[in-house]
């Protein structure tokens, strides 16, 4: 472990560590007061960032990952910041509470599953069931921005939060069942989506001023994080559609009382 100068920075070589050993080491760094932790040679270790609940409650750390983190990156994340220089696997930000995750690449299935706070930015595309059952309440409004496209069941059961699908790099959206079972939150999609690709619980609406503001804000953040070769303005110049649930109670009429 090396210590940096301006911020208290520590470095861990993950190449010979199991996930438990790596997370032990990260936890120890935080207990020792690290503000920034650099992980080198990460090769599939799971749960990075998960074990950082309150070893030092005031200390929110930044974790920079070189390599490929394993499943459940930042699961139950509690306000830290994770940057991945590479791709991520399944379960990024699973049940995340607060914090930020940036992935300079693609991510696997169930990105942001059940997250209820914080932000996730994925530069490229994601797998199935992204934003599955994402929620929000009182002050919490989770945000997921995906640069490319997503596969089926994007925003399934979504109960709150914001999902933005940018469709950069001329990808076409092929996902089906988008927003199926959705009963809260909003999905913005740039690029074309046919009616048959949508779940029957969502409706397509035109953007209003407040939507433009939301998009402007998060697309700016997105373009600031990643070197995309396309500006915020260029991204926003193309048309977006907005998906909203048609009911807060999609299954209210299924039962006989």
């Amino acid at each position: 472990m090396k210590t940096g100068e301006e911020v208290n920075e520590m470095e861990i070589d993950a190449s010979k560590l199991t996930h438990k050993e790596l997370n032990d080491a990260i936890r120890n760094c935080v207990l020792e007061g690290a503000e920034r932790i650099i992980l080198r040679n990460v090769y599939g270790q799971r749960y990075i960032g998960t074990r950082l609940y309150s070893p030092n409650p005031d200390n929110k750390v930044e974790i920079e990952i070189f390599g490929t983190p394993g499943n459940d990156l930042g699961a139950f994340l509690n306000g830290h910041r994770i940057i991945v220089h590479g791709n991520a696997q399944d379960g990024v930000g699973n049940t995340m509470d607060d914090g930020e995750i940036m992935v300079e690449g693609r991510a696997g299935d169930i990105v942001g599953m059940s997250m209820r706070g914080g932000k996730i930015f994925i530069r490229d595309s994601v797998g199935y069931r992204a934003a599955m059952h994402m929620k929000g309440y009182s002050g919490k409004k989770p945000v997921l921005v995906i640069g490319g496209t997503a596969q089926d069941f994007l925003g399934e059961y979504m109960a709150g939060g914001i999902v933005i699908l940018l469709g950069l790099g001329n990808v076409s959206h092929k996902a089906n069942f988008i927003g199926t079972g959705m009963h809260g939150g909003v999905i913005y999609i740039r690029g074309e989506v046919e009616k048959y690709q949508l779940g029957k619980e969502v409706g397509v609406l035109k953007l209003e001023d407040k939507d433009e503001e939301i998009l402007e804000k998060y697309v700016r953040e997105f373009t600031n994080y990643f070197d995309l070769g396309i500006s915020q303005k260029e991204i926003l110049s193309e048309e977006f559609i907005k998906l909203l649930p048609v009911s807060k109670r999609p299954y209210g009429r299924v039962y006989a009382y």
């Binding site: 459940d72 399944d90 379960g91 699973n94 169930i110 599953m113 209820r116 069931r129 599955m132 059952h133 929620k135 929000g136 309440y137 009182s138 919490k140 399934e156 059961y157 109960a159 709150g160 079972g181 009963h183 809260g184 807060k248 109670r249 999609p250 299954y251 209210g252």
Partner: peptide, 21 residues
């Protein structure tokens, strides 16, 4: 209940059949 479950007030609290992870 909305506060405790972390969902907006008045929405159905839907528990999917499987855990999708």
């Amino acid at each position: 209940i909305a506060e405790t479950r972390m969902i907006p007030e008045g929405t159905d609290a839907l528990s999917p059949a499987p855990q999708h992870d």
